[in-house]
Amino acid sequence: MVTLREYATVDGLSAGYWSTDPADPRASTAWLTANRWPEDGVRFLADTGAGAACAARTQDDHIGFPRMNCTDIAAGTGRDVTQPEADLKEARAEGLRQLNVCALGYGPSVFPASLPNGAGREGAGRDGAEGSRSAGPAFDADALVTSLEEHAGSQGRLLTFLHLEETNPVLPVLRERGWHVGVTDRYFLIEDIGADEAGYLARFPADRRRQLRRELASLDSAGATAEIHRGDTVTETIQQEVAWLEACADEKHGIPGDPARLLRVNERLRTAFGPRYAVALVRDRDGRAVASATLVLGTRDVLLRMVGLGPGSEEIGAYFHVAYHLPMRLARSTGCSRVLLGTGTGTPKLRRGAVAQPLLSAVPPAATAHGALLRRTDAALTACP
């Protein structure tokens, strides 16, 4: 018997699924509410018997949102994995109708309710946020997977789990049931930001320290300046500057730039996070904003949401400041210890002290075509240094 209830937003779910003070901002209701757009298709499924909720997305074709399409993810499409066309064709037919457990921004997608006596989630961390939580039913991962399987089966959909961290509590259940599980991406973060800039630099060998010092000095050399604004100090003018810079960055990546859409998202984030919403800006010698980063804070992590780059940013090395050095400065000043950088190209992140954590995806035993794709993607990404 299917016991799941569906909600369009997190607002209708019990507060027991959410930490009041999350270590990782992506585990907060603020993130799951504000980091949305009307066409994302994400819904929230709650199973009170299993003591859990999850974020999920259905689809009936292979159009749009490749990061939420299990066929593209299993095939490593965004990671340049080579797959036989015949296998891709078979998988597209196998997975035409999907129910994918996944969330926006590569964040947690499974939310266990509180354990009795306020013990909090088992294995609290990136996929189980820390903080005070109300008491609730014990989390039963096996029951949750069963409910999701029945729910997907009743709709004729292929159930999958995408972008899971290794500590996700459903992974042992999936492996026990014979699901195909493999690495489909990497998430980068800087775990050692140092007590100060000198402490951060001390972790690198001498030649790399010299390079990073030159990088850190690039703004002074160009007469440029760096700024960090939080909460109420992020003015309407700054929000408009950031939206324009983010639209410029989209254009550089072949995405139509839409400052109005980007401004709406950033306004939602500012409203939802309040003082935990921040903007890093670099201005050239004439005071023009040439690079930006939008950031949100948890109690442990600073999350880099998006970098904006406009004309003149490359000449002064502004990207490295808004993408790495200013988020670390913000983390140190607010008592956070890590910076979450997201996925994407690994080399520049690794050269600045990031580590790569694998993200895994899982498809059921009967999904043989997706299983074949997943095995190749896992082998290709696991072989990368």
Score class of each variant (00 low, 15 high):
Ala56Ile: 13
Thr233Val: 05
Ala226Ile: 10
Ala119Leu: 13
Pro112Leu: 06
Leu13Val: 11
Ser109Tyr: 00
Met68Trp: 12
Gly41Tyr: 11
Glu94Trp: 03
Leu99Gly: 06
Lys252Thr: 10
Asp207Ser: 14
Trp244Gly: 12
Arg288Ile: 13
Trp31Arg: 04
Asp250Thr: 04
Ser154His: 10
Gln211Ser: 14
Thr343Gly: 01
Glu166Leu: 10
His62Ile: 10
Leu115Arg: 10
Glu315Ser: 12
Thr9Tyr: 03
Lys349Met: 07
Tyr17Leu: 15
Met306Asp: 14
Glu251Ser: 13
Arg332Trp: 11
Val307Pro: 04
Pro137Ile: 05
Val282Arg: 05
Leu4Gln: 09
Glu39Phe: 02
Ser147Arg: 03
Arg276Val: 01
Arg305Met: 15
Val296Glu: 04
Ala113His: 02
Asn117Thr: 03
Ala8Glu: 15
Ala224Cys: 12
Gly287Lys: 07
Arg26Trp: 04
Pro172Ser: 07
Gly78Cys: 05
Ser132Thr: 07
Arg26Gln: 14
Gly342Met: 07
Phe139Cys: 04
Leu96Cys: 02
Ser28Arg: 06
Asp192Arg: 14
Phe139Val: 08
Asp232Val: 12
Glu85Ile: 09
Leu171His: 04
Val42Lys: 01
Pro116His: 06
Gly41Gln: 13
Gly335Gln: 08
Trp179Met: 11
Gly107Val: 07
Tyr200Phe: 11
Ala323Tyr: 13
Thr368Ala: 10
Pro348Asp: 13
Gly274Thr: 08
